[in-house]
Structure formats: structure tokens, C-alpha cells
């Protein structure tokens, strides 16, 4: 498709003045999005936080003097100092190293769970919304059943069935988030299906599959993107919750939720063992929420020209 468009764009615009048409400022809708993104404070702050955490997660561990699982029996529960910035835990492990390494786990869980639920949810929502009838009834009822359970409870049940591990926690989080995206997509499809351009596509003689993937999907992705960013935050919390309950990451993995639960008993004697992983969770969630809120304001279809 893109190559096709370039073949059309080859001639330079003729010098003839355009008469009676709106000014062609932006080359594409994406240009508009970028401009309003820069203007939105919360989106920019959120993006900065998210990108920083991402950067720390990717390259941070390379610069650490300690491994996240490096036990030092002589320096247990030490307060933060120049040597151990965030102090040490009950096994003498450097909390800073563990928090930094934990970012990798949390982002990976969030990314996997959200991507997985977006793919599965959108596909199901697309089918339910476009074909309607019994397909819609079937898929929508499955969503209703999933939504009838409190999310974390369902995740616990799934992990209990599959066995506790980080991987299974990711699957569980992905599953419980599927209906969110499924319903969102379904509602978008129901609305877009009624648009004239979809009818026009049908009138042209286009096949269903092409209508779905070339016309409906590209016009539905914005709320999915926003919801995905917001759900990233939820997924991070859910992963931490499962870790805290011992159903997610297993020791000695430096998962933030797990670190919180391990340090419960030292809350008075060595609060840094809780404060730093807790703050890390909070900052990550805040970053994704700000970014998501900002994106929602920018991409709100009602604000589009």
C-alpha cells in the first residue's frame, strides 16, 4: 500500500494556487498527533518516566557493582549508604541492584500480558462486532463470565491451576485483561461498521477480511492504544500482587511484589527494604497512567477534525 502511495506522490505539487479548500497543513494524521502530544504535559511527563524506566531496565543492570542475587552475610539489613544506595536486605543483597533488575521483570510482564490480551481481545472483539449474531453472543458471554470475577481473584485461580511461576502469572494477567480489550474493540467495530466508508468498501466489492483489517482495524486502534497503556499499569500492579502472594515470580528473582512480601517483617527495623521496591511500583504505574491519560486526551475521537 505504501509503495502505491509513493508512486502517486512523485509529481511535485503544481504551483497553481488551491482554490477554496482547507489549508493542507499536516501531511498526515500522525503529524497532528505528534504536535498535540508535545503540548500535553501529562503525556510528556508520563512518556519521560516510562522511557527512563525502560532505559534503566535495559541497560541499568550492566552498570551495577552487585548482582541482584549476590548474598553478603556480613552486611545484612544495612541502611542506605554510599556503598549500598538503597541499603541491603535480610540476606545482605543490594536492594538497589534488585530494584533495577526488577524493572526488567515488571516491564516484561506488563508488555507480554498487555500485548497478549490486546491481540486476543481485539481479534475476538473484531469478530464479535463485525459478524454479530451467535458469534457475538458466544464471545460476549465469555467476556461477561471473565468479567464477573474480580480480576486478581481470577488470576490467582488461574495460577493456582497452572502452578506458581512468573510465566504462569503472565498468562493469567493476559487472560484477565482480554475482556477489557475485547469489549472495547467490539464497541468500536459496532460504531465503525455503520460508517459510510465501510458501506462504501462493501459497495466497491471488498471482501470481509480486507474490510476488517484495512478499514475497521486501522480506525479502531486509538482507544486500544490508550487502554493498553493504562492496562500496562494495571498489569504491573497485578504482577506485583501475584508476586506478593507468592504466586508470581519465585525466589530469588528480584520481583518488586515479591520483594515487598519478603521484607514485610522488617518494616520497622529496615523500612528501606520495602520503600524502594514500593516506590518503584508506584513510579512505574504513575508513568503509564500519565501517559495513558495524556494519550486519551490527544487521541479522543471527538477532538479529531
Amino acid at each position: 500500500m505504501s509503495a502505491n502511495s509513493t508512486s502517486l506522490t512523485s509529481p511535485t505539487p503544481s504551483p497553481m494556487p488551491d482554490t477554496g479548500e482547507p489549508k493542507a497543513e499536516a501531511a498526515s494524521p500522525l503529524g497532528n498527533v505528534w504536535r498535540s502530544f508535545i503540548k500535553s504535559r501529562s503525556a510528556v511527563i508520563g512518556a519521560v518516566i516510562v522511557l527512563s524506566i525502560l532505559l534503566i531496565a535495559v541497560i541499568g543492570p550492566l552498570f551495577l557493582p552487585y548482582g541482584y542475587n549476590q548474598v553478603d552475610a556480613n552486611s545484612r539489613l544495612e541502611a542506605p549508604s554510599a556503598v549500598h544506595w538503597f541499603g541491603t536486605d535480610d540476606l545482605g543483597r543490594d536492594v538497589f541492584a534488585r530494584v533495577i533488575n526488577g524493572a526488567r521483570i515488571s516491564l516484561w510482564v506488563g508488555f507480554f500480558a498487555v500485548t497478549g490480551s490486546i491481540i486476543v481481545g481485539s481479534l475476538l472483539g473484531l469478530l464479535a462486532g463485525y459478524y454479530g449474531r451467535w458469534i457475538d453472543v458466544l464471545i460476549s458471554r465469555v467476556f461477561d463470565i471473565l468479567l464477573a470475577f474480580p480480576g486478581v481473584l481470577l488470576a490467582i485461580a488461574i495460577v493456582a491451576m497452572l502452578g506458581p511461576s512468573l510465566e504462569n502469572a503472565m498468562y493469567a494477567i493476559a487472560v484477565i485483561n482480554v475482556p477489557t480489550f475485547g469489549r472495547l474493540m467490539r464497541s468500536r467495530v459496532l460504531a465503525i461498521k455503520q460508517e459510510d466508508f465501510v458501506l462504501a468498501a462493501k459497495a466497491i466489492g471488498m471482501k470481509d477480511r480486507r474490510i476488517l483489517f484495512k478499514h475497521i482495524l486501522p480506525n479502531s486502534w486509538t482507544p486500544i492504544m490508550v487502554q493498553g497503556t493504562l492496562n500496562f499499569a494495571i498489569a504491573v500492579i497485578e504482577a506485583a500482587a501475584l508476586g506478593f502472594l507468592g504466586l508470581g515470580a519465585q525466589p530469588p528473582e528480584p520481583e518488586w511484589g515479591k520483594m515487598l512480601s519478603d521484607s514485610r517483617q522488617y518494616i520497622e527495623s529496615a523500612p528501606w527494604t520495602m520503600i524502594f521496591p514500593g516506590s518503584a511500583i508506584m513510579l512505574t504505574v504513575l508513568g503509564f497512567n500519565l501517559l495513558g491519560d495524556g494519550l486519551r486526551d490527544i487521541l479522543d475521537p471527538r477532538m479529531k477534525t
Binding site: 500500500m1 502505491n4 502511495s5 502517486l8 459510510d196 466508508f197 466497491i204 466489492g205 471488498m206 480506525n219
Partner: peptide, 17 residues
């Protein structure tokens, strides 16, 4: 306006059939 996909250029819309 409604009968043209907002995310496709005029050229692509005409080429589509």
C-alpha cells in the same frame, strides 16, 4: 466525508476498487 476512510489518502481510496 463519512464515505471516505479518514486514514487513507484520496489516491488510495480511488485505487482500492
Amino acid at each position: 466525508f463519512a464515505s471516505l476512510n479518514p486514514r487513507k489518502t484520496a489516491g488510495l481510496a480511488i485505487a482500492e476498487p
